[in-house]
């Protein structure tokens, strides 16, 4: 029986949720791996400080309130807003941080973006493999064990004791849903609460983009799914409010 590689695990409270780590250290010593995890956590906290819409003095809050212009803010703010614009177009407008009252809100993309930045720290530190789960939005690289893929369960939207599916993930997976606590999924076209999806999952190479596309899919349902299907590297898996399902045909569902 092959033992799975031992993980170094860590859970960090940041961005209003828990970001958990499972790191296969490979050639890294345990100390080096923990140092890399600490560096990744610093990246997460920095992202929170920059992008939080709950902290009135954060750069994004100052942008929203008109106290600062985009040009006066850290460069990563402009970078994230550019990504937001890309996803807005790619999603047919179903992800639209500019449609919400109170000024631009990139929250739907930022958590995935921040986790992706954190994972890059672990990768460049030389870890063999790692998974970071930012409260349900997951980015991975490498293999959790010899010949193994990272296996991610997708929470069933209604049955807390069930998974809707298990997916083998090579880079990123994000899920959004109307069961989300404090969810304020809004149809960007009507401004009304969205109710076209019970659960919306997106896989792909970038967690920032997958996170935003999952928000789009949750708001837009089938129409958003058709936009995701047109993106070569991304896959979508939709559970509708009536329990029926569709996917784009390129998600690695496990048996």
């Amino acid at each position: 029986m092959v033992e799975s590689a031992p993980f170094i695990r860590h859970a960090e409270h940041v961005m209003g949720t828990v970001v958990s780590f499972a790191v296969v250290p490979g050639r890294l010593s345990a100390d080096s791996a923990m140092h890399a995890i600490a560096s990744a956590c610093a990246v997460l906290h920095q992202a929170d400080a920059t992008f939080s819409t709950w902290k009135p003095q954060s750069p994004v809050s100052r942008l929203r309130s008109g106290m600062a212009t985009e040009a006066e803010l850290p460069a990563e703010v402009a970078g994230v807003l550019e990504l937001c614009e890309e996803v807005r177009k790619a999603s047919g407008g179903w992800f639209d941080p500019w449609s919400v009252p109170g000024g631009v809100d990139p929250t739907g993309l930022v958590k995935g973006w921040a986790v992706e930045q954190g994972l890059a720290v672990l990768r460049s530190a030389g870890a063999d493999a790692a998974m970071m789960n930012g409260g349900g939005d997951i980015a991975v690289f490498g293999s959790p064990g010899p010949g193994e893929a990272w296996r991610v369960g997708i929470r069933h939207p209604w049955r807390a004791d069930a998974l809707a599916a298990i997916v083998e993930v090579s880079a990123a997976i994000a899920t959004s849903g109307s069961y989300e606590r404090g969810s304020h999924l809004i149809n960007p076209f009507t401004g009304q609460p969205a109710s076209l999806a019970a659960s919306a999952t997106v896989t792909g190479p970038s967690l920032a983009i997958a996170d935003a596309l999952a928000t789009a899919l949750a708001a837009g349902g089938d129409d958003a799914l058709s936009f995701i299907a047109a993106l070569a590297d991304y896959g979508g898996y939709l559970i509708r409010p009536d329990g029926s399902e569709s996917d784009t045909g390129n998600i690695a569902f496990a048996d």
């Binding site: 789960n133 349900g136 899920t175 069961y179 606590r181 659960s199």
Partner: peptide, 9 residues
Amino acid sequence: INGVSGASY
């Protein structure tokens, strides 16, 4: 499984 993807809380 290694993790669960779901709406955050």
